[in-house]
Amino acid sequence: MKLISIKRETRAELRFTKKMGELTTNVTYIKKQFLSIPYKTIHKYRQTYYGKIKDCENISLAK
Score class of each variant (00 low, 15 high):
51 G>T: 05
37 I>L: 09
60 S>P: 05
55 D>M: 03
17 T>P: 02
33 Q>P: 01
17 T>R: 05
41 T>F: 10
40 K>P: 02
39 Y>F: 15
28 T>M: 01
9 E>Q: 10
14 L>A: 11
34 F>M: 01
13 E>V: 05
57 E>L: 05
37 I>G: 05
10 T>C: 06
1 M>A: 11
46 R>A: 04
38 P>I: 02
25 T>I: 10
37 I>P: 07
4 I>L: 09
3 L>Q: 08
48 T>H: 12
24 T>F: 15
56 C>G: 03
30 I>Q: 04
60 S>L: 04
1 M>G: 11
50 Y>R: 07
40 K>A: 08
58 N>L: 04
32 K>N: 06
37 I>Y: 14
19 K>M: 02
15 R>K: 10
35 L>D: 08
51 G>V: 01
42 I>Q: 07
51 G>K: 04
38 P>H: 07
43 H>W: 13
27 V>P: 07
57 E>H: 14
5 S>I: 03
62 A>G: 12
56 C>N: 04
45 Y>P: 00
48 T>S: 13
5 S>C: 06
31 K>D: 05
44 K>G: 00
51 G>S: 02
20 M>D: 15
59 I>D: 03
23 L>A: 07
51 G>W: 07
32 K>C: 06
20 M>A: 14
42 I>A: 07
35 L>E: 05
46 R>V: 00
24 T>I: 12
30 I>L: 09
37 I>H: 12
9 E>Y: 15
3 L>N: 11
25 T>E: 12
29 Y>I: 00
55 D>Y: 11
8 R>K: 12
52 K>G: 07
21 G>E: 04
30 I>G: 06
61 L>I: 07
57 E>K: 10
4 I>M: 06
12 A>N: 15
48 T>A: 08
35 L>C: 09
48 T>Y: 14
47 Q>T: 13
2 K>N: 13
46 R>E: 04
60 S>H: 12
50 Y>N: 04
59 I>R: 00
56 C>A: 07
22 E>C: 03
3 L>V: 12
33 Q>I: 00
39 Y>V: 00
39 Y>G: 03
60 S>I: 04
5 S>L: 02
50 Y>I: 00
19 K>L: 01
35 L>M: 11
53 I>N: 05
16 F>E: 02
19 K>N: 06
60 S>R: 11
